[in-house]
């Protein structure tokens, strides 16, 4: 997808993540729409395109985050790349693949973010974060993934009618 279209789209998703989703958080947890979008696009688009999306939306998120700048960009670029590579091998044609991939991506995303914080000398209670934040977030993400993945699949089919999805 052209950057002229994808950049405004990604900015919009980042704004929804920053401004609107905190208002509809469930038991204090908000779904990670940006991560879900990157993962979904990694499973549908040419390998590497989702990594570019991950970088762009990561920069937008970094602007609003209290965590050190660049963390979201780094984590989402890496995940977009890895999942884009993985979709050709593991996820092809499986209906359960999108939510399962997002659960794994949420775990990897939080491990990368917490790992960077640990590297710059923040004390991290890994067990508490992974059990009480990552796990519920991953499950919530998996629930919202179909609502994002299937419309995106239609977009991908429309953009590349020759492709098999």
């Amino acid at each position: 997808m052209s950057l002229w279209i994808s950049i405004p789209l990604l900015a919009l998703v980042a704004i929804i993540q920053i401004v609107l989703l905190p208002q509809v958080a469930i038991f204090g947890y908000k779904p990670d729409l940006a991560l879900a979008l990157v993962v979904a696009w990694a499973m549908l688009a040419p390998v590497g395109e989702a990594a570019v999306w991950g970088f762009i939306i990561g920069i937008f998120l970094d602007l609003a985050s209290g965590l050190p700048f660049g963390m979201h960009a780094l984590a989402l670029t890496t995940l977009g790349w890895l999942i884009g590579w993985g979709q050709t091998t593991f996820f092809r044609g499986n209906l359960l693949a999108p939510p399962v991939a997002l659960v794994l991506a949420t775990l990897a995303h939080h491990v990368i973010l917490l790992g960077i914080l640990a590297l710059i000398n923040w004390q991290i209670d890994w067990a508490a974060y992974l059990l009480r934040v990552t796990l519920p977030t991953a499950l919530l993400n998996a629930l919202v993934m179909p609502a994002l993945f299937f419309p995106l699949q239609r977009v991908a089919r429309w953009l590349r009618p020759q492709m098999e999805f």
């Binding site: 499973m43 549908l44 688009a45 040419p46 390998v47 590497g48 395109e49 990594a51 570019v52 970088f55 990561g58 920069i59 970094d62 050190p68 700048f69 660049g70 963390m71 960009a73 780094l74 670029t77 890496t78 790349w81 979709q87 050709t88 996820f91 092809r92 044609g93 693949a97 960077i116 590349r160 492709m163 098999e164 999805f165």
Partner: peptide, 23 residues
Amino acid sequence: MYAPNRTRPVWLIVLVVVAILLL
């Protein structure tokens, strides 16, 4: 579910390096 056009790996490495640099 995959597409043949791939973003060149060098660009992906550049993006990761830029992100690390920003950090």
